[in-house]
Computed example of a mutant assay.
Amino acid sequence: MKRRKLLVVGASLASLLARGAYAQDKAVKQAEVRAKAKQALEDFYKADAEIKSAVGKAPGYAVFTTYGLSFGLGGAGGKGIAHDSKSKKDAYMNIAQASAGLQIGASDTRYLFVFKDAKSLADFIDNGWDASAGAAAGAGTGRDEANVKAGAVAFSGGTAYVLTKAGLQAGVSLGGSKVWKDKDLN
């Protein structure tokens, strides 16, 4: 009987310690995503000062950092946040991209979505986002001169910006992007 109680107490203690370690690990990962998102925003502001004004006036925005490779088939993925300017809350998000076509490259790319209204932001956070892609080319050195590729592009919920931080991509491809809420970090 004592042995059984000891096992139950031991299992309970192990469970509590594991939950504490998970919470600490989660907090570390959230801080890392927030830091990368903050840096990506600063990169956008350096590339085009008008973006800071657009973000400041918007009901919300989402910013992502992705890393990808392509050689015929391509893929990229990353994490980011969707920020509600009114509530000051962040939702942790994932982004994945896939493509196929005449393409080659590697890149470190930032994406910024500036939402036109609170409903568009809420739909983005709650339902995710799917989009198709077309021809693309971009280059960046990873230094301050990295530039906003193709300027602002309108989408149904607002305006999107793309910044190639480092790498080189060229080609024509068909593909898509998917954004969804990160279940582990929210």
Rank of each mutant, 00 (worst) to 15 (best):
G56M: 02
G77I: 08
S12Y: 05
W180F: 13
I81L: 08
K57P: 03
A31R: 15
A91Y: 03
A100H: 05
T164C: 03
N94V: 12
I81N: 01
F124M: 03
N186A: 04
G134S: 14
K57H: 02
G74C: 07
E32F: 12
A31S: 15
S70G: 09
Q39S: 11
A133M: 14
T65M: 05
L16R: 02
L6Q: 15
V28W: 03
D90C: 07
P59F: 03
D90W: 04
K116P: 07
S132L: 08
G68L: 04
L41Y: 06
A154M: 02
T65P: 03
V9F: 02
D182C: 10
S15G: 10
A27T: 15
G72L: 13
A150D: 13
S15Y: 07
D43P: 04
A40T: 12
A96V: 13
S156Y: 05
S70F: 01
N94F: 11
T164A: 02
S87A: 12
G134L: 11
G75I: 07
A150R: 10
S87H: 05
A133C: 04
A11I: 10
G142T: 10
P59A: 04
A40N: 05
V8R: 04
A137S: 12
L7K: 14
V33E: 05
M1Y: 06
V55K: 01
A76D: 09
K29C: 13
G157S: 05
A136V: 07
G138Q: 03
K165Y: 12
I81A: 02
A21G: 03
A27F: 11
G77Q: 09
F64L: 10
K89S: 10
G72M: 11
A154V: 06
A154I: 01
A18T: 09
